[in-house]
Write a protein that binds this DNA or RNA. Sequence first.
DNA 1: ATTTTGATTGACTAATCAGTCGCAAATATA
DNA 2: TATATTTGCGACTGATTAGTCAATCAAAAT
Lengths: 186, 186
Amino acid sequence: MDKKEKIIDTALKLFVENGFHGTATSKIAQEAVVANGTLFNYFKTKDELVVAIYISVKEDMADFLIKNIKDSDNFKDVMKSQFLASLFWALNNQMKFKFIQQFHTSPYVDKIEQEVTQSQVLPHLKLIQTGIDKGLIKKLPVDFIYSIISSQTFGVYQYIISKQFTKVQQHETVEQTFELLWDMIK
Amino acid sequence: MDKKEKIIDTALKLFVENGFHGTATSKIAQEAVVANGTLFNYFKTKDELVVAIYISVKEDMADFLIKNIKDSDNFKDVMKSQFLASLFWALNNQMKFKFIQQFHTSPYVDKIEQEVTQSQVLPHLKLIQTGIDKGLIKKLPVDFIYSIISSQTFGVYQYIISKQFTKVQQHETVEQTFELLWDMIK
DNA sequence: ATTTTGATTGACTAATCAGTCGCAAATATA
DNA sequence: TATATTTGCGACTGATTAGTCAATCAAAAT
């Protein structure tokens, strides 16, 4: 197996479990069954590793969302498919989702260039803009609506995790939340 | 000035700036103009300090919210006053708010007893229950609605921070968001 | 068969860390 | 004033840390 990938996977797990600074590089190397020096061959510093994981995880999610855009001419359906896909991904990649949250609320966020982040939300902003142009959702700033939807996603995620829902219950809750959300912005 | 308070204030600032493990206890003591050992007189361990700050900050916020409950028989007004107060506090105590976020998405959350957290959200849950009983808001699980509102609060906060709004613009945005929220749950 | 190349290793280090401890100063009690 | 208690100090330590580097290895290229 690719050592770089192994290091990323192991580090992701340990970071989520013990925090960024709470995880020693030696521990990562040890658990990844790799020499200490190998880690630093692939990542010049520990910080570089953290940022690399963030980018990798974000790409992973972005790829999934792109693949799941419902190609319908019904705007609400398209919005819904994206909302469902986001939550589906989060619930099926809890460690990665937690990592993103941890990263976003940590001082590391400042170490990442705006462009990287911006390019990933752009498709979503465009989708929202389309809805506004068609008069299907309220005339509000696109990034305001995006902000609301994102945090709502996070909120439902937390709620679902806190309960021990079955897949069916999870799906019901997500559907229900989208309807609420839609009522709000339509 | 009270040394314990000075330590908490300094630690809060440094933790938000550099993360929990990224901040050395020696650095905290130094910046608080206090001896290294003094810090450990007040807090047995670094972890204890982190948790103490969390509790202190949470109390601070809870106190503010209690003081700002509008004593009206108009349910919507009461809800609104709480929503506005939450955001007002967050915007005027950004460091403390950031600390809470950082804490919530860190492995430290597990170190805090459920009871402490529960007692602080209870008044809000009760308020929501009242609204449901009176048939003023939708019949959904109270903690689900609480989840929705909380994440909405966080979302608007993030949005307002990302823009550089004047006080007036901030207020307008918050008011507007509450109306959206109300439309969603009513 | 020999050389070259690049990946991999793990012992090593200088720095930093959380936490200790014996003592001094300040404050309270008598 | 004398004594007791609390509060504060900072040099110290043993453990741990991120990061280095010269040596080794496997495999490909010559």
